[in-house]
Every structure is written in C-alpha cells, then in structure tokens.
Amino acid sequence: MSSPSLFKAKVIKNARLNVEHFILSVRPEGIMPAAQPGQFFMLGIPGRLDPLLKRPFGYFRVKEDALEFLYRLRGKATAIMSVLDAGDEVEIIGPLGEPYPLPKPKKVPLLVAGGTGIASLYPLADAFGGEALILYGGRNSDELLLTEELRGICRVLGLATEDGSVGVKGTVIDLLKEFLAGKNKNRHVVYACGPRGMLKAVSELGLEGYVSVEERMACGIGVCLGCAVKTSTGHKRACKEGPVFRIGEVVFE
C-alpha cells in the first residue's frame, strides 16, 4: 500500500448535487495519490484557525485528473468547504487507513450504504466491475445520490427512503432484511458504510463482512488516539487499524 503524503491541491470545481450534498473536485500538486476503496483523506484549508483541524473524507473517486470528495453539509467545516471555488487551495493528507479487503472467491459482494456512506462504497462497487449488489438507504430522495451512475457499476441497486419518496419505504436495514429473507447468507460478503446505528444493525444480522466506521479525528495519521473505537480486543484507531473493521470486531454500544 502506498504510504500517505501531505500535499496541496487546487479546487477545480465544487458541484452542488442538491441542498445538502456536494462533490468537491481538486487537482493535487504533484502525482495523484493511489488510494484504495475504504481508505480516506484528511482535508483542510491551510492556515485556518477555526476550524483548525482537518476533516476525514472517504476516498470517493478520481475523475478527469481530479480527486473527488462527496460530502454533506454538517457543520462549520463543511459549510466553509461548500463555498470553496475553482482556484482555491486545500491541504490534504492521504491516503490513510486500511482499505476494504476483497471477498473470497465465489462470494458475492453486497454493499450496504446509508446516506453519504455511499462515498466510500462507490469506488468499491466500481472495483468489482459490475458484480456487486448495492443496497442504499437515506431519509429522503435527496439523500440518495448518484443513483443513475451507481446503476451502471453494479448488478442490482436496491433503494430505500424513510419517507418512501424513492424505493422501498423504510431504512436500508429493512431492505437488507427483506433481501436476505429465504436466501443463504453465506453467499455474500457485506460491506457497510453509514451511520453508527446502521452499522450496529448490520453487525447484528450474523453476516460475514466489513463495516467502515466514522469517528471524530484530530490527526488521521495515528498519533492522537482521538478516534479510538471499542473493539473485542480493546481500543483501536479508526484512522490506522480502521476505518474498515471485520463485522463483529467493533463493539457498538
């Protein structure tokens, strides 16, 4: 795996997908980092005091020589990020963390995404060359992003919204349970990324696979120990031993 680097990048564009969601495209100075699905980058604006720390964003994709980040407006940092314009400079560290492991032969990858969790699963689906199944849930249709593109890179795309505006009415967990009903669970390897409650629910279904957790991080490189995750073998760093953990490893409370 390539070791992480610290680099500056220029914003190419900052496309608004809908009210809360954006794709930031940046061109790194120097060579494009070789990230693998499941890894992440720390992104910040150099010299800023508030917010001071960089924020972690899952590796989403490289498109037209630009490194892209899919993000949702959540707080101070993403609000500032949302007004970045072409030509602005950002500072990035990465790629960081452990990627999603590949499934054993003959196992079918089943990707379970909640909200912006799709950002880290999108490149994974792409890597499976159309073989993956994707179940994707959000609160409403605005939280289901890039569905047309996703259809083009997977075998099956199942959608769920809590308000029922698109796909099945309910959560992605409802969809997952419905999908698994009467099927042999052992055929699949699950890859889940989304809110904590969703990952907890996925972990309780007795499936083989992986969850990618999201934690507050200060450094992202493994020195601050701020992103500790409780696991069956003690505290582990989301940024270093994670963010991808085997199902059953993380103790969700």
Partner: peptide, 30 residues
C-alpha cells in the same frame, strides 16, 4: 507519548472535540 508501568486502555470514546482555534481531548494516557 506518555507511558505508564502497565499498559493503559485509555478513556472510552468519544475522546476529542474541536473548539474555536483548539481542541479538547481526554485520551486518558492510552
């Protein structure tokens, strides 16, 4: 990083929060 006689597990998460121009941590000497 600070060390103790025996390994320490540190505090339960969440351990950090950013505040204006700073951050608060309670790692607990893991």
């Amino acid at each position: 990083k600070g060390i103790s006689l025996k390994p320490w597990p540190g505090n339960p998460p969440p351990r950090i929060i950013e505040t204006p121009s700073g951050m608060i941590n309670a790692i607990g000497l893991q």
